[in-house]
Amino acid sequence: MNTPPDAQGNPPDGPREPRSDRWSDLGRPPLNAAALRRALVREGGLWSDVDVVQRIGSTNSELVARAEAGKAGEGAVLVAEEQTAGRGRLDRQWTAPPRSGLFFSVLLDPAEVPVARWGWLPLLTGVAVATGLARAAGVDTSLKWPNDVLVTVGDEERKTGGILAERAGDAGVVVGVGINVSLRAEELPVPQAGSLALAGAVSTDRDPLLRAVLRSLEDWYGRWREAGGNPVASGLQETYAAGCATLGRVVRAELPGDRSIVGEAVAIDGDGRLVLATENGVQEPVGAGDIVHLRPA
């Protein structure tokens, strides 16, 4: 009588291969794509499709390509269990072990909103991510202007997430989000990084975390769009300012062209820019650049 191979395909009396499939790290189970679609894709809702892939270079690059080729419409969500060429602002690399975080991009096309107000989309996404994570993970979150999500690890403020928005031709805007969920201290890409687990999250189950973030994003996007992109009428400007860890601090803004400004961050203006009060009494809005927190508020 022949004994069949075991569940892993090993012969009954032969050498056993170490498991390397998607179930090999039981502390980091895969996302349930079918359940996510059932929970998020509904008639009259924003999300039109949720596609989960095992491994990809960049969800942003892929979704931009799909949108420009007419293969994705507004509300498409692309999620990767692992990114090999994830990108942050200023072309910084974003790396993390497989299934250790949430790495996804969404396609938004707010045609009824003036293009001049589309610059609010990454800030809106930051508010939605911070709100969704606070509810589902039970951690205090804050935002570093313009697009970093911060948590507290010990007594330190650490970056646990980032947001990157890119135009997708005439198809709209692709907004990418990366969130470190279960990374351990030895897995952090840089010492200044953090994760929800290290911040004491009550849950690191990525399925409910992703659902919470996408539902929060749908809510905030709907409010903003109904207000014609008006950040005051939608409540976005006030909410962003309330959760912004940059305001009230002395910061250095490193600007394009090797220029920098030091000043106190005093406001977020109607265009989503950070307003700095400099030593010479001038208030200067910053629309693009890298912000370094120099002193606590």
Rank of each mutant, 00 (worst) to 15 (best):
N2S: 13
P12N: 03
G14V: 13
E17W: 14
R19T: 10
D21F: 10
A33G: 09
L36V: 15
E43Y: 06
G45Y: 02
S61K: 13
S61R: 14
E62P: 02
V64T: 13
V64L: 09
G73A: 13
G75R: 12
G75W: 11
A76K: 03
R89N: 13
L90S: 04
L90R: 07
G101K: 02
F103M: 14
F103W: 15
W118G: 01
T125Y: 09
A130M: 05
G132D: 03
A137P: 04
G138L: 10
T141M: 08
K144W: 01
W145I: 01
L150K: 00
V151G: 03
E157Y: 04
I163F: 07
E166D: 05
A168G: 02
A168Q: 03
G178W: 12
E187Y: 06
G194E: 04
A197C: 06
L198V: 02
G200T: 07
L209S: 09
R211K: 13
L214Y: 02
R223A: 04
G229P: 04
A233E: 15
A233T: 11
S234W: 06
Q237Y: 00
A241R: 14
I261H: 05
E264G: 03
E264L: 00
V266T: 14
A267R: 13
G270P: 02
T278Q: 13
P285L: 04
G289H: 06
V292S: 11
P296Q: 11
